[in-house]
Structure formats: C-alpha cells, structure tokens
Nucleic acid binder design. Structure first.
Lengths: 230, 230
DNA sequence: TAGTGGATACTACCATACAAGTGTCGGCCA
DNA sequence: TGGCCGACACTTGTATGGTAGTATCCACTA
C-alpha cells in the first residue's frame, strides 16, 4: 500500500517542488499571477523559504503543460491566454469527454454513480454560496468521477492539462450564482442521459456543456485584452 | 524568430536535461531499457558525463508521462506495460484522432496534405528496408501532419504521451515488413476518405487503424510476460 | 540629435555538497 | 535455530556556488 502518489486532485504533496508547483498552478489559474507576469526562481524561492532548485523543478512542470514559458537565459513568464489554443483545447476536450460519456452509457461503476450525485449537490451549495473555488473543485471532481466511472481514468489525465487553461477563462466568466447554476443543470442532464443509457443524448449534453463554457469568450477578451495574446 | 522551442518531433534540444530526457525516452520506447529496469540518477549522470541535476529533471519529465515511476528515497524504475492502461490509452487516442480526421474532412491545410503523401511514401520505403525506427518516426510524423492539417496541433500534444506507451508494444509486434505494410494501407485509406470528404468513412478508417495496432497485444503479453504488470 | 558599442545586471542552467529517508545484511539474543 | 535490532550502503530531495547567455542602459561617436 505504498503507491497512491497522487489520487484525485492536487492536494499538496510531500516534496517541496510538488507543493510549490501546486501552489503556483493554483495562483495562475486564479489569475493572481496574471498572464504576462514575470516569474523569477530567486523571488519565488525566497518567498516560499526554499532553495531555487525545487522552484526550478516546479517551473519545469508548469512549462510542460504550457502554463508558463521558460525562455533560456532570459526569464520565465506566465503565458497569455490564446483564443486559438482555447478553441483547440475545447475541441480536444469535447472529443475525449463525449467518448467517455458514451462509454459510460454501456457500463458505469455503481460507486462512482453514487458519488456523482453527492458532488452535484455539493457543487450546487458552492454555487449558492457564490464560492468560485469550491465550485471549480467540485466541477473537476465531477468530471473525474465520470472518467473513473466509465473505467477510463486515463481520459481525465489527458483532459487535465487542457482544463487548466480553460479554467482561467472560467475565472473571468463566472461572476455570480446565476452563471454557475446553469452549468449544474447541464451536469444533471448529462447524468440523466447516462442513466437512460442514451449514448447520443449523453454525448450531445456533454457537447453543449463544453460549448457553453467558452460561449462568453469573446466578451471577456474584449474586457481584458491585456490577458490575451495577439 | 526566437521561439520554435520544439517543433515537429523530438530532435535533441539545447539543454542537457532535454537531451537526456529525449535519449532516455527513446531507449525506453525501444525497450533497450526494459520495463522494470532500475534507473539511478548517479549512473545516468556518469554515463552521460553530466551532473545529477539535469538527469533528475529528465526523470521528472518522464515520470510526468508515466514512463518511469519515482519512488521517493527508494529509486526510479521503468514502469511495466499495463494491458489495462493500454486499452484506456487506445480508447482516448481513438476519441481524439477520429475527431481530428472528421475535422480534416471539413477543411484541411493544403501544405500538410502535400506533406502527407511524401510521408507515406517514405514510410513505405522504411518498411521495405525493414527499418523499424524510421517506420515509427514517419508514423509519428503522419499523425502530426494530420493534426496540424486539421488545424489542431494541440490534439497531437494530447496524443503524444499516450502514444509513447503504445509504441513499446508496437516495438514487439512488428517483426517484419509484412506486419508494417498493412498499416501503411490503412494510412492511405484514411487519407482517401478525407480527400472524399467522407467524415464517417474517415473516422471508421482511423478507428480500424488504431484497433489493428493493439490486435496482437495478447500474443506479445503471452510471449513476454515479464514486461507486463500484474 | 540619432545611432552605435560596451560594461553591467539580470536570467536560467549546471555542478557540487549535504541532508533525510529506506531496504538490506549481519550480528546478537532468547 | 528463529526472530529482533542496529549499522551501513543506497536512493532521492534540497541547498548553494559558479557559469554562460541575454537584454538593458549609458557613454561615446558621427
């Protein structure tokens, strides 16, 4: 019973490098570190009270998922949001997750099915409390449970990096409960279609859900042009 | 014209860490480092004439794509091939690449279209020379060109990590030209369907292609049980 | 005044040294 | 003889110093 290095979501790990990477990822997604910010190994190291080495490893991890760009001998910056990349990400994510829900219609793990009801409920509470962070956490857990229930946890891993980028937009596009609650309804529609074992309906519900998320993208781009790349 | 950090495929990069990561990844996929091998930062560092630090970063990169597993304070091992993971990987890859070819039917970049013909030709030559390495390289470039031509290079990035695992099986399952040539025919079928702008046919051709690749999986597992996890 | 060349301060990158945890092996004891 | 316990060899993780590359800024020149 060693293993279990990283189950479910990014709870702070043991190693300092992983802790810092999680923390930086959170800050970037929450836009506390806005796109274009310059990151310095030195600064971050001092700020976290550790050496530069773990920070460096953390930045390399973030660079691998394209959240930051390491310019050799120059510096490291938080990458700007690219509308083009965002469209591509949405496309790939739709491909994966629609396939997942189709598969879920054939066979779905009972335990995961139970868990999903709880998650939706808790997510709704978070929305009514207007708690963005919790909302996004439960959203993530919902999609994870979907993938695991369908017997394909690897699908989630493939989606994870992609989702990180989309979450930055969601951070801008969810100003209150009235924007979050519809997404929960969409979740319920997806689950209902799976329960009815209706593949096409489930896939379409998922497609609509993922389309909705980026519907407001042009608006936020117009409102915050400095966060987007040319 | 700085940028261009990593275009097309894994040609050895500037940094030592990236060089070593590419080299290790190649060795693992080629099964020169068989599953279960114990890797030591110290050994690899001495072998490559560098310090432990770049090696460490390389191993972290490989661990992120699940090619190796870093056991803290214990050691690092090449992960064994898991039939279950392989099935999941195939599923996700099919989801992505069928979506890509469907998209390609709507609009496909002319330059990429031209390139694909060349790639197929060169891949056929490699097959007739019985050159596994070149065959797999051109196979990779074929799928890259497909994604880029469809206007979704990000799709390839998502597939890349997944493909690394499948390639280890392919290494075992392709003993000669008679096994490679059918795959090329399948590539031609895919392209033909795209040219005809027949979405369903293209997706089905891709599905068949990806199904074929792992058809011989039970056989190689029986032949080399020591490479697979329980 | 506009343009150019070089010193300087910054960065990521690499090497080395140290710290902390884990499995193993051998001696010791009941 | 079987089981326990501690020293040791090995691993990864972290800290720190030094190196090479790049951009900036300022003095100098045409």
């Amino acid at each position: 019973m060693r293993t279990a290095v990283n189950s479910h979501f990014s709870t702070t790990q043991g190693s300092a490098a992983q802790r810092i990477e999680s923390e930086l990822r959170r800050s970037i997604i929450a836009l506390e570190l806005p796109p274009g910010s310059r990151l310095s190994e030195q600064d971050i190291a001092e700020r976290h009270g550790v050496s530069r080495q773990p920070v460096r490893e953390a930045l390399i991890g973030l660079a691998r998922t394209r959240l930051v760009e390491i310019q050799p001998q120059r510096g490291t910056v938080v990458v700007k949001i690219s509308v083009r990349k965002m469209m591509e990400a949405r496309f790939v994510r739709e491909a994966i997750e629609t396939a997942v829900v189709r598969r879920a219609c054939s066979s779905f793990d009972r335990q995961s099915r139970q868990r999903i009801d709880d998650l939706i409920e808790m997510q709704e509470h978070a929305a009514r409390r207007d708690d963005h962070d919790a909302f996004q956490r439960y959203d993530e857990l919902f999609h994870i449970a979907l993938a695991e229930g369908a017997g394909c946890p690897l699908a989630w891993e493939a989606v994870q990096d992609i989702k990180a980028h989309m979450d930055r937009v969601c951070q801008l596009t969810l100003p209150g409960p009235e924007a979050m609650l519809p997404l929960i309804d969409q979740h319920r529609n997806i689950v209902a279609a799976i329960d009815a074992r209706n593949e096409d309906a489930a896939a379409e519900a998922m497609r609509l859900h993922l389309t909705e998320i980026l519907r407001a993208l042009p608006r936020v781009e117009a409102e915050h042009p400095e966060l987007f790349s040319a």
